[in-house]
Design a binder for these strands. Sequence first.
DNA 1: TTGTCCATCAGGAATTTTTCCTAATTCATT
DNA 2: AATGAATTAGGAAAAATTCCTGATGGACAA
Lengths: 213, 213
Amino acid sequence: MSNTINVMLVDDHAVVRAGYNMLLKNASEITVVAEASSGEEAYQLYSTHKPDVVVMDLSLPGIGGIEAIKRICSRDSKATILVFSMHEEVIFVEQALQAGASGYITKSTDPQLLVEAIIRLSKGEKYIDAELAQRLAYEKSRGQDSLISDLSTREFEIFCMLAEGSNTSEIAKRLCLSYKTVANYSTQIKSKLNVSTIADIARLAIRYKIIQA
Amino acid sequence: MSNTINVMLVDDHAVVRAGYNMLLKNASEITVVAEASSGEEAYQLYSTHKPDVVVMDLSLPGIGGIEAIKRICSRDSKATILVFSMHEEVIFVEQALQAGASGYITKSTDPQLLVEAIIRLSKGEKYIDAELAQRLAYEKSRGQDSLISDLSTREFEIFCMLAEGSNTSEIAKRLCLSYKTVANYSTQIKSKLNVSTIADIARLAIRYKIIQA
DNA sequence: TTGTCCATCAGGAATTTTTCCTAATTCATT
DNA sequence: AATGAATTAGGAAAAATTCCTGATGGACAA
């Protein structure tokens, strides 16, 4: 029997997936057993392939990466998910870990670290990008979380979608929630962030580099 | 002598660069002769390597991709630059082409099209993602390019206030207009700008540097 | 184990906002 | 003088928001 690490790649860009695939071919310990291009697909393929480690981008169409992590982890509490994201902001690390991820690295890191991180996670360890871990610790120690990190997982998710220009009913549809639920969340988010319009939400999101202008 | 196509890759994510690199290794016509991780570096390496085609991401640290394209093209008017971006909005295509790029494809396209596009560009042809080209042509045909400059004085005024986070009744008060007037303007502005939420308005205003995030 | 807290989800009802239609007025331009 | 665009705004219907309430389930502490 082999003790190879079975990995599933989740990224909506086929080119990027192909690149990772080739990178990981150089690592003999690792076998890519599945690829998904959306959160929904990831969730389904996870069930059929049960990979040891999921390498997941956060910006995905449909249900985003965070929601995909939540669903996979609620289905299988032992799921091991490595977030491999372009976002270099602490807030994303917090949210991803809260959703159930076991590791977080950014696409700026040395390619070799992707392999390293996958191996670490497969052993049950955690692995967080060194610089982000530092910043996370530093900000935590100074209690310097932005208002945004007060948002719950769901709140944050809806916050992002509002900032990106989705309206209440679109969000409800995408997240399979009642319109009312999203509307109520929207009100609560504004209250927590101390703003009164969606424009303020968008600007906050851009200021904190959660979305791009 | 060889008739291989010399390519320079510009992307701030090393992993992504490594991926493209490997993808392009499969294409015998193409040789990657340089890699840059920022606009500045791209500019410098261009001068020393004179690649036949530059494959360039748009989201780069420091001077962005657009600015890098402008500088490279102003140095060498025959420079051939293929934008390879995650952005699927027409505005980015317009800006990139205006800056001097010869092609634009998105990271969602089939990996094989990257090779195809590079070959096309090396022959002096243009290559633009099919779907984006359609949308661009359509919008151009409707004279719908500089959206914001289509706004009337009053519309623009209200547009700015909406983007800054004022709500309809605040704006009405400040401009000494009826609530209804502002509400109707708001609807019309969205329609002219082809957006549906205030978040979109805020992002547009920030993108065009009309307000700051 | 039980109780408490929090996150999540959502309905009801009142209110507010948005949308779409219509129309008056002014002002510039042909 | 006439056309057209900009500005202003009301009415009516539709949609969104707000504030309340309450159910559920998971985490955690006494």
